[in-house]
Simulated scan of single mutants.
Amino acid sequence: MAGNRDGWWLAAVISPLVLLGGWMLWPDSPEPAPSWASSDDSGRPTQTIASQWQEPDTNLASPQGTGVADSQPSADDAEAPDAEISLDRLQHALANIGIDENGDLVLDEIALASLRQAFRGLENAGPETLNELKLYVEAGLAGETGSQAARILGDYINYRKALAAAEADWGKLDDLGPRQKLERAIDLRRQHMDPLAASQLFAGEDAHQRYLIAMEEVRADPDLTGEQRQQALTRLREDLHSGALLVDGKGTDAVEKLRSERQKWESMGLSDETQDYLKQQTLGLVAARDLAGTDTQDWQNRYDQFSQQRNTILNAGLTEDEKARQVESLMATYFTEEEVEAASNWLPEYLKTELSD
């Protein structure tokens, strides 16, 4: 039931129209393929919801008083406001979501595409029906896996409904551009979903959104010369490719400095693996600042001190493994437990391993 994961990735990541209603930005030339959007399936989970699903022994399949059906509704029924919800359709939509070795859902682009497919059949579901569907999902998957799946499903549907209502209001604001809409959508998402879970689901799509928006801004800037515009566009493509746009770097220069720091790490003779780890650590800390709602100036002061001591460790005459161990320990000195956890978990494991130049 795993399906074609690459096709799901493209549908999930490069479809801005699905995210924010009617506004859509596309570059004139094909987008660069980010290194973290690898077509290699080796790091992805082998277990899915489909492989662990056990048909619940419930009466939810009865349409009497539940609004839930156990078979695919007809086209006419699907268009009706009170259309019955097909349990088969829901189960099929969620089937490809991965499950890791700990029984946790893998919240990646596959999961996002799956939730979108589920929402298409559930957007008219009322609170009672949605609660029954969540119980059905929870009963079909054992333990915490079922609880996670039910919670994520409910949170995502509530977010999408809130987004639709918000977009109606945003359309009345003439001065609200694509960047502001994206920021508002992210804020709204975190009101209805766990912020860390939302980051894992949407990080890749948000990166593409930031790339497309920034590219249009560069092209429309009348103060740039042709050469300056080309340099800015090249830099944006590099930032997308490297993963720098996976996080919101507004208010910090940490992401901006990554390019020069990477050159410094290379001159030290650090391996590509260690350099990738350091880059992921930096991006994770920026993501944690955003997810935890940390005061920007306070975080920047702590990060500057952390960065200085990290450089001291990296320049010391230690083995590479010992440098990595000390740098990892250093995080706990300058960042809260919540920030360290978010920095470690803001992306699925397979993206962490693929995030390299």
Rank of each mutant, 00 (worst) to 15 (best):
D88V: 12
E261Y: 12
K279N: 10
W346A: 00
T353L: 13
L258S: 07
G154F: 01
N345E: 15
L163D: 03
D253M: 03
L25I: 13
I14D: 10
A149D: 00
I186T: 15
Y211N: 03
I99N: 03
R120N: 15
L291R: 06
G251L: 09
L25P: 01
Q305T: 15
S74D: 08
A83T: 04
S62R: 08
Q275F: 02
E55W: 04
D175Y: 07
L212R: 15
D321C: 00
W346E: 01
S15K: 06
T129M: 04
A33G: 08
A198Q: 02
L10Y: 04
T274Q: 10
Q191F: 05
L245R: 10
A332L: 11
A292D: 11
N124W: 06
F335M: 05
G3N: 09
A2W: 02
W299V: 04
V68M: 12
E349H: 02
E354L: 01
S344L: 07
P45D: 07
G293I: 12
A118S: 10
E101C: 14
P73H: 04
G143H: 05
L133I: 10
A37T: 13
N301K: 14
D248P: 03
A232Q: 15
Y350V: 04
D169E: 15
R89M: 14
Q148D: 03
D175Q: 11
L224Q: 12
L314H: 12
D41M: 09
D221R: 12
T66H: 06
A50Y: 12
R237E: 15
R151M: 09
L330E: 11
I14Q: 07
T336H: 07
S39G: 13
S51V: 01
E354C: 00
I14W: 03
A113S: 07
G98I: 10
L25T: 05
D295G: 05
A2E: 05
Q300H: 10
D290Q: 14
Y211D: 04
L318A: 04
G140Q: 01
P32I: 02
G154E: 02
A288I: 09
Q309S: 10
L347D: 02
Q64Y: 12
S147A: 06
I14S: 07
Y334S: 03
G98F: 10
W26D: 11
P30A: 08
A185K: 07
E261A: 06
W23T: 05
G171V: 06
E101L: 14
W8I: 11
S29Y: 05
Q209W: 14
R325P: 03
D82Q: 11
